[in-house]
């Protein structure tokens, strides 16, 4: 006993700080205030300040006045194009996201890694380059232009040019979200359903689809937000012809060029409000997904 007591390391010494409970979770108030202040200041400088500036500016013009500028043929046609593109994005990416995610995760075939990498590429390059690439392919003097002229199809500077550009830039969102979920889930549940006598279609509708539902919705909403905000690709491929291929974003750009600031701010406000709405739904979905994942993974972790 007395030998143990003689060991210096076991004796409380001045170098070991007394432990307080609150020390574990709460740092010194000074650090907390400085760091929080730094973050809030940064957010204010980069994001909140500019956002409030837009709102104040529009409030000065009058929200009604700014929005009333949008009740005019060009603005309404631009909005119509944007809404059509939004709907096309929703449908196409809904289908491609579900099927593409499943194919890329659950199928094994040569070139799978390449296809998967290609699918991420639109996130990594400039929309202007995406527009340019299509222009060189199907535009005037492009590689496929003799063929397109022969069958009398015009894509560039028409609505279909806008569709191509938008589908390209929104390709990755839903496929990626669905892939992540499928990779995490594996095929255990499908195998169990089959063993219990479910038909392949029953398994698909009752097991696979419900599992990817939230991720698919999340990805499709991200794609929709992107399609609404896309500018570079639709400017290059559509040419922003007023009343024909102008979208909401190119309308803002052209209004600024023409010094028609009220209309530009009105449209900016409309887009900002709409995208905030999308973001609100996205945040809700994210929380729901986190909850279902916890439910799915929580117990298995404990038994493991």
């Amino acid at each position: 006993m007395h030998k143990l007591e003689a060991l210096p390391a076991l004796r409380p010494s001045a170098s070991v700080r007394p432990l307080k409970d609150d020390k574990l979770r709460a740092p010194s108030p000074l650090t907390r205030i400085v760091l929080s202040g730094l973050v809030l200041g940064y957010l204010g400088l980069v994001l909140l300040g500019p956002l409030s500036a837009l709102l104040v500016e529009i409030a000065e013009i009058g929200f009604g006045v700014a929005l009333s500028k949008l009740v005019d043929t060009t603005a309404l046609l631009a909005l119509k194009n944007s809404i059509l593109l939004l709907l096309i994005t929703m449908v196409v990416n809904g289908v491609v996201g579900a099927l593409g995610g499943i194919v890329l995760v659950r199928h094994r075939f040569p070139g799978r890694a390449l296809v998967s990498a290609l699918c991420d590429l639109p996130l990594a390059v400039s929309p202007v380059m995406i527009g340019l690439s299509f222009l060189l392919l199907i535009g005037k003097g492009g590689v496929l232009s003799p063929l397109l002229e022969a069958i009398n199809i015009k894509l560039v500077f028409t609505f279909w040019g806008l569709v191509l550009g938008t589908l390209f830039v929104t390709l990755p969102y839903s496929i990626r979200e669905v892939s992540y979920v499928l990779e995490e889930l594996g095929t255990d549940e499908e195998e169990a359903a089959t063993t219990l006598g479910a038909s392949p279609w029953q398994t698909f509708w009752k097991v696979t689809l419900p599992n990817i539902r939230i991720a698919l919705g999340y990805g499709v909403l991200m794609a929709m937000a992107r399609s609404l905000g896309e500018f570079g690709a639709v400017l290059v491929l559509g040419g922003s012809i007023s009343g024909q291929t102008q979208t909401a974003t190119t309308f803002i750009h052209d209004s600024i060029e023409e010094r028609n600031l009220d209309a530009a701010y009105g449209m900016s406000l409309l887009l900002a409000v709409f995208s905030s709405g999308l973001l609100f739904i996205l945040e809700r979905l994210k929380k729901r997904q986190a909850k279902t994942q916890k439910r799915a993974h929580g117990p298995s972790k404990q038994t493991a």
């Binding site: 905000g229 887009l271 905030s276 999308l278 973001l279």
Partner: peptide
Amino acid sequence: LPLSIPTLV
């Protein structure tokens, strides 16, 4: 917010 707000805006 920057994920959903159009970059032009």
